[in-house]
Amino acid sequence: MREATKNYGSGGNAVQALRGISVDLARGSFTAVMGPSGSGKSTFLHCAAGLDRPTSGQVLLGGVPLSGMREAELTRLRRERIGFVFQAYNLLPALSVRDNITMPLRLSGTPLDRAWFDEVTSRVGIAEKLRKRPSELSGGQQQRVAIARALINRPDLVMADEPTGALDSHTGQEVLRLFRELVHDLGQTVLMVTHDPVAASYAHSVLFLADGRLVERMDRPEAKTVAERMAHFGGR
């Protein structure tokens, strides 16, 4: 991301959600994004994922600028090169676990790589649940299905928006450990928005946003230090 700004509205009602943010995410890194309410976290994530366009500046994915792409091109890029994990799982209740995971492949017309499917489902711990429906799984298991779905296209980047927000602390930490394993063992790149200092401590680094600006980057974060910085920025 290069000098990205994002404005909403115009005139006296204009709101600047992002103010000249520049940041690089290394391949195979796990980065958390934190900041108070209204700091620009969601806008940052949406612009980074090509879900929204910055008013000025550039967003690049693997060296490819997103700004000049048409909407159809952006949709294809998101489908093929970005995986999404949300707090609410967003699984289709009428489909089996297997069909939920492979849905992105059907949408993109990509053939199933059976060896990769087996590795992903084994890695996330749901290889024995493939015939079940989401309603038959715990919250933690559903989130694991969502992670497998995000990985099935071998994306350049996984975007996680409060991925442990609906989970109890123990299950949430299991999911966060899974993210770290995916980064370390598979070279996956993960960008995670969170309000939880414990969740952020699993990342390699934390980006702190305030008033639409990138105000600090913390490497090798610890939960206590992250919480102290968040208190300094005004909490959530």
Rank of each mutant, 00 (worst) to 15 (best):
E174D: 14
M192L: 15
S205L: 09
H195F: 03
V198H: 03
D156R: 07
E174T: 13
P163C: 08
E174R: 10
N153I: 01
A150W: 02
H184C: 09
V198Q: 12
P197I: 10
T171A: 15
P197W: 00
D196C: 04
G187C: 09
A160F: 13
T164L: 09
G165Y: 00
R177N: 12
V175M: 09
I152N: 00
A150Q: 02
D185M: 05
R177D: 07
H184I: 11
P197F: 04
R177S: 14
V190Q: 02
A160N: 14
P155I: 05
Q173T: 03
T171G: 08
D196V: 10
A199D: 13
V206R: 00
F179W: 04
G172R: 01
D185L: 13
D161F: 11
L191S: 10
P163T: 11
M192Y: 08
A150N: 02
A160Q: 12
R180S: 06
V198C: 03
A150F: 02
L167T: 14
S169I: 08
A203K: 12
H184Y: 00
L151C: 01
V206F: 12
R177C: 03
L176Y: 09
T164P: 13
E162F: 02
A200D: 04
E181T: 07
I152V: 06
S201N: 10
A160I: 11
M159N: 04
A160E: 12
L182H: 04
D161C: 10
T171E: 10
L167N: 10
D196L: 06
D168M: 11
R154H: 10
S205F: 03
R180T: 06
Q173R: 13
E162W: 00
M159T: 07
P163H: 07
H184M: 13
P163V: 11
D168S: 12
V190P: 14
E162H: 02
D161T: 04
G187V: 06
F179D: 06
L186R: 08
V198A: 05
G187H: 00
V193C: 08
A166N: 15
V183L: 02
T171D: 08
V158T: 05
H195N: 14
S169H: 13
D168E: 08
D185C: 10
P163Q: 06
L191E: 14
G187T: 08
L176R: 08
L151F: 01
R180W: 03
V190A: 07
N153Y: 01
S169W: 03
Q173W: 00
R177H: 11
T171Q: 12
A166T: 07
G172V: 09
M159R: 05
P197A: 10
T164W: 13
G172P: 14
V193R: 14
E174Q: 15
M159G: 04
E174A: 12
M192I: 12
P197H: 09
D161W: 12
G187I: 04
T189K: 09
A199E: 11
I152Q: 01
P163L: 04
R177I: 00
A166Q: 14
Q173C: 02
V183D: 01
V158G: 03
L151P: 00
L157K: 02
T171N: 13
S169V: 11
L176F: 08
P197R: 11
V193T: 12
L191M: 15
Q173D: 13
M159L: 15
L167F: 04
T171C: 09
E174S: 13
E181I: 01
H170Y: 10
H184P: 00
A160K: 10
A150Y: 01
V198T: 08
E181D: 08
S201D: 02
